[in-house]
Design a protein around this nucleic acid. Structure first.
Lengths: 250, 250
DNA sequence: TGAATAGTGTCTGTAAGACAGTATCGC
DNA sequence: GCGATACTGTCTTACAGACACTATTCA
């Protein structure tokens, strides 16, 4: 009936995805023999080797193809930039302020990914990047990043902090089996102001939330312990499939 | 240095925003004289009068211009479709599955808006729409909507339900001052399975959350009451500026 | 024995959850 | 007095928060 005119108006010059890749690095403390490692939240940046923002650090990302969804695009870029597959990747916002990219009208879709440090071991630079590096988040936030990537990084960090406290994404930074101290440390690494003196009581003996983790037992039904970081062996836990439902009103 | 070739690859044919406009309708019960109204969650749809999906119902929305951000676009579309400004509007997801729009490669950005029924009083159809109507959400979810709009509507509803229980967006559906019953009713209208026998105790006398609402007092410092819906006058409350921080771990 | 981690015991005050009871007021 | 809304009283159990105490093992 009505003919559709596809190019009556200007169309975008590209729809990329940008990915804020977070990891937690662990470094052993030399002071003590068996002690909890020092953990730090880091973000992966690449140094641009092309115009615009040549030489500046930027979030990894790239243009979406017409044969893939934004989510596919983000996963592909993550694989191409880091070699990593099968990790937690989540969309969180769109960045579309006019003029945000000197190349034209480019609408960027921001994802964050949570990756274990060991998956990044064999990371490799993509064509587009002169260098790839991890930076502590606090340092990255003080840098002058390409485009509006500092804003994107700040938003991603706020989102991850919120989700760290309201969902079970902490498991992305932990082994399948972990001790309560490790969990506590991971939460504190992402949310520095988090402090909870009676943490172990709350999580293990509070009816309303103890369902989210469970004690690991060996095949004899005996509680499974670990002394990786301690003299006295600690109980191992794992996350269950329970999806916590928080509510203001109940 | 490196010349930038803007049209080396195919670029998107458009980046629209689609808006899921929710409202709660109130209809008086004829049985009783002073009684709480029957409330229902409704969504605004428009009937398309152009190809594609001519004649089918769709979410309001439209293409973004290169002089505005996606958020600006959504607000403009909301104003054009309903005449409404200054309401809660929030971005929640991107829809980009290849083939989702027969007109080409079109990446849609989905927002939801929460609007009071009375703001929709003087709504008017846009050029593009043969008709504009409110549908109960449950009915809209059973309809065959244009494009992937049923998926978008379903996702929006899940998001709004989650936010209804974890943030103070309930205030978008209430007057500045409201009674506890009205608040309870609004929550139940959006989240039908919500039930909380001791609701009034929790919200008014629990240290950890009573900060989110406060008693309204008149200029003499006397508690301000309302008997709009009841024989016995009920205490009026208002939301404070407190932003609730929910946490699994504390 | 001390350092480092991993817990447990116990007490107090507050909150959750259930459910019955009272209050107000128009018809 | 009834119906409809709006609370309050009271009781039991659960949880929060504090803090001292015990447990395990290695250097």
């Amino acid at each position: 009936m009505h003919a559709y005119k596809p190019k009556a108006y200007r169309t975008p010059d590209g729809a990329p995805s940008d990915i804020v890749i977070f990891t937690i690095t662990s470094t052993e403390r030399k002071t003590a023999k068996k002690a909890l490692p020092v953990r730090e939240l880091q973000v992966l940046l690449i140094q641009r080797k092309n115009w615009p923002f040549e030489g500046q650090w930027a979030l990894p990302g790239g243009f979406c193809k017409d044969t893939e969804s934004m989510y596919d695009c983000a996963r592909r870029e993550l694989r191409e930039e880091t070699g990593v597959t099968d990790v937690h990747i989540e969309y969180f916002n769109v960045y579309s302020t006019p003029g945000r990219d000197p190349r034209g009208w480019i609408i960027s879709h921001a994802f964050f990914a949570l990756v274990q440090e060991r998956w990044l071991a064999e990371r490799r630079a993509a064509d587009d990047a002169a260098d790839v590096r991890l930076f502590p988040v606090e340092e990255a936030l003080r840098m002058e990043l390409a485009f509006d990537h500092r804003t994107i990084l700040r938003d991603a960090l706020l989102k991850v902090r919120e989700k760290m406290l309201t969902t079970t994404i902490a498991k992305q930074f932990l082994e399948e089996e972990f001790t309560i101290s490790e969990l506590y440390q991971v939460i504190q690494t992402v949310v520095p102001e988090f402090e909870e003196p009676n943490f172990i009581r709350k999580i293990t003996s509070t009816q309303s939330r103890k369902g989210i983790i469970e004690i690991v037992r060996d095949r004899n039904g005996e509680p499974k312990l670990s002394n990786r970081y301690s003299q006295r062996a600690a109980q191992l836990y794992r996350f269950t499939d329970v999806v916590p439902q928080l509510s203001l009103y109940s």
